[in-house]
Design a protein around this nucleic acid. Structure first.
Length: 654
RNA sequence: GCCGCGGUAGCUCAGUGGUAGAGCGCGUCAUUGGUAAUGACGAGGUCGAGAGUUCAAUUCUCUCCCGUGGCACCA
């Protein structure tokens, strides 16, 4: 028997006979290690403890506290769930069940979908399987054998999976007791290693292989952790996230509402629209300073333009189409004639074609470039019903949109300026966690390789110069040009597409935009589509969740409430209120016949950042007691000083 | 669009084959109180819409609409 050298993380080396297993090595080191071991890492690759090791290797024995352990716990937990489901609901087919961020899921095929009540029963069964501590054992089967096995069992999805595995791939079968599954592995030694810190969370539908043309399966989501403490913390976090839901806060804070007559479109209330206006005004100042000029273009545009721009062909299913005909008021007959469908208009889903029209008015010289047209463009998109999600995904929304028309040699300069703008704006808004992705050329694309080289490098240099951390995504660019996407992470951990910078070599061509070059000939400008906030609606939604409704002072719909303690101070309260308004602050006066406790509680719930509390004493002295949200302090200051302080703190960041 | 769950008072939710309840909010009255709920009384609902079963439907069945968790989609 030949000897192999095993190198451990501390660089110590031990020799063993070839074919020794990870578990045997662990046992050789110590009994307690063997007990705690859940897997091995062989030359950086995770593997089963039971697998023989045949050659020299770097080896690490993994325990529950390793980073990788969580993933294994979740993966094993998915298997345990699948066994539980099949024992409780015979005839259910298993498909795939991976570990995911914070948990795992398993997709099942079954005629009657699971209900939420089933989860409890399944979870109970899972705990039994874990308690039994069945060993995970690994076997390698031949392809035909495996396909026959699963086909005979009626597991058509598994059989399909095996069919589609590459020829070179070993068909690995894992058993936990009696239960058998196709799986890449690795697994922990027994089901007992899963532990007890798991919980099934929800049932959902999911398409087989993520394809909406294929069968709809039932997915069960669960979460699993190392111990109950971690589980509890995660469940708390979910609860906290739910409390921050912008839709809930929007109702509570009286910011906006939705109703079914205008599904997917926002009814902004005065307070919500105050936030909206502040955001818009802020971006407008930023854009003005950045050399943009604001325009406004039509909402309703003839489909001829959408045909020319290419949207009619590729994007029509997301557009709202309107017949250009006077509707009939005859109650008996049809509202529009058959002919109406020959002449259609559409609500704009994007602003770009309209901006090109503005660019095309008059002759442009190379000296005019770059031209930066900005618009708070109200767009309508016919989103699928299931896609709608409060402010985050709406059917009508307003982009802080702009299009920059420039020469090729101006791409880099414009990109740098834009990246700077994005960085400054996000910093002002209080976002640290921003994901930046540079999407590069896809296989099918317009434009020469030279111009793609230039464009991609222009964007890359811009990101490097701005000092933004970014990742590159091969093949992910649009057919018309590369792009940079800026995604903000919200309170629930979801990332939302906000800003974007997209280079476009195609639209100027399609809509025949040109400028006169130095040489006196016509040239195509390059077009940069760009948005910083993306959609004002969505960005406000992200802001609400990020701040849990406690927006920074400059954005707070009501910045200060003047609350009187007794009616003796009403007159003085009026004076304080007037002074706040005079200073340009958004204030409210609360002289209701209520106790101060009640007023403080109510305005705290409403997330008003500052209260000026006034009673007889303050009226006498010309002062206010300043109470800030989440603070018990109540410093008393002279009225003028307090207002000056608040006015300074309420200044927008730009 | 697809699968699951839901729709009852302004909000949050309970409940029932014999046309409904709570808390908060709202209104009235009393209370003038120092930093997270003063008390009493009162008003308020075609129980999402339509159809069916039934002597009787908010409750059961079906269809539709909307919301919601996922999936697909997000050029």
């Amino acid at each position: 028997m030949s000897e192999i050298n095993i190198t451990f993380p501390d660089d110590s080396v031990r020799s063993y006979g070839a074919g020794i297993t990870g578990m045997e090595i662990a046992a050789d080191i110590s009994k307690s290690l063997a007990k705690a071991a859940i897997a091995v890492s062989i030359d950086g690759e995770l593997s089963d403890l039971s697998l023989p090791i045949e050659s020299d290797a770097k080896l690490e024995i993994l325990k529950r506290d390793n980073e990788e352990a969580l993933e294994m716990i979740r993966h094993d937990c998915a298997h345990v769930m699948a066994e539980a489901v099949q024992s409780l609901f015979p005839g259910t087919q298993v498909t795939i069940g991976p570990s995911i961020e914070n948990g795992f899921y398993y997709d099942f095929a079954r005629n009657d979908p699971f209900s939420t009540e089933d989860l409890e029963v399944i979870e109970k069964e899972m705990r039994k399987i874990v308690e039994r501590g069945e060993s995970f054992t690994r076997e390698v089967w031949s392809r035909d054998e495996a396909i026959k096995f699963f086909t005979d069992k009626g597991e058509m999805y598994k059989a399909e999976l095996i069919q589609d595995l590459p020829e070179t791939e070993e068909i690995k079968i894992y058993k936990q007791g009696e239960w058998t599954d196709l799986c890449r592995g690795p697994h922990m030694p027994t089901t007992k290693h899963v532990g007890t810190a798991f919980k099934l969370l929800k049932v959902a539908g999911a398409y087989w292989r993520g394809d909406s043309n294929k069968a709809m399966l039932t997915r069960i989501y669960g979460t699993a952790w190392r111990d109950d403490k971690e589980l509890k913390a995660y469940l708390m976090q979910l609860e906290e996230a739910e409390k921050r839901d912008h839709r809930k806060l929007g109702t509570e804070m009286d910011l906006f509402h939705f109703q079914h007559e205008a599904q997917g479109s926002v009814f902004w209330h005065p307070k919500g629209f105050t936030i909206y206006n502040q955001m818009e005004a802020y971006i407008r100042r930023r854009l003005n300073a950045g050399g943009y000029r604001e325009i406004k273009t039509p909402q309703l545009i003839d489909n001829k333009l959408w045909e020319a721009s290419g949207h009619w062909g590729k994007y029509r299913e997301n557009m709202f189409v309107v017949p250009d005909e006077v509707p009939s008021t005859d109650d008996e007959g049809p509202i529009v004639s058959d002919k109406a469908f020959e002449k259609l208009m559409a609500l704009k889903p994007m602003n770009c074609p309209a901006h090109v029209q503005v660019f095309k008015q008059g002759t442009k010289s190379y000296r005019d470039l770059p031209i930066r047209f900005a618009e708070f463009g109200c767009c309508h998109r016919n989103e699928a019903h299931g896609a709608l999600h409060g402010l985050m995904r709406a059917r009508q929304f307003t982009q802080d949109d702009a299009h920059i028309f420039c020469r090729e040699d101006q791409i880099t300069g414009e990109s740098v300026a834009f990246c700077d703008l994005v960085k400054n704006v996000y910093t002002d808004m209080g976002f640290e966690d921003v994901r930046v992705v540079l999407s590069l050329r896809p296989d099918v694309r317009a434009g020469s390789d030279e111009i793609w080289d230039k464009a991609e490098d222009g964007l890359r240099q811009a990101l490097i110069k701005t000092g933004l951390d970014f990742e590159e995504a091969e093949n992910e660019g649009a057919f018309y040009g590369p792009k940079i996407d800026y995604q903000v992470r919200d309170a629930i951990g979801r990332t939302w597409q906000c800003g974007t910078l997209q280079l476009d070599f195609v639209l100027p061509e399609r809509l025949d935009a040109n400028y006169i070059g130095e040489d006196g000939a016509k040239h195509r400008p390059v077009m940069l589509h760009r948005a910083v906030l993306g959609s004002l609606e969505r960005f406000i939604g992200v802001m609400i969740e990020n701040y849990a409704g406690k927006l920074p002072l400059w954005l707070a719909p009501v910045q200060c409430v003047v609350a009187t303690i007794t009616s003796d101070a009403d007159e003085y309260g009026q004076k304080v209120f007037a002074a706040l308004q005079e200073a340009g602050l958004r204030a409210e006066l609360d002289i209701r016949n209520e106790k101060i406790n009640y007023k403080v509680r109510e305005h705290s719930h409403a997330k008003v950042p500052v209260m000026f509390v006034v009673g007889a004493r303050e009226a006498e002295e010309g002062t206010v007691a300043i109470r800030r949200m989440d603070s018990k302090d109540q410093p008393v200051e002279p009225l003028e000083k307090a207002i000056e302080l608040l006015a300074n703190q309420s200044k927008p960041p730009y």
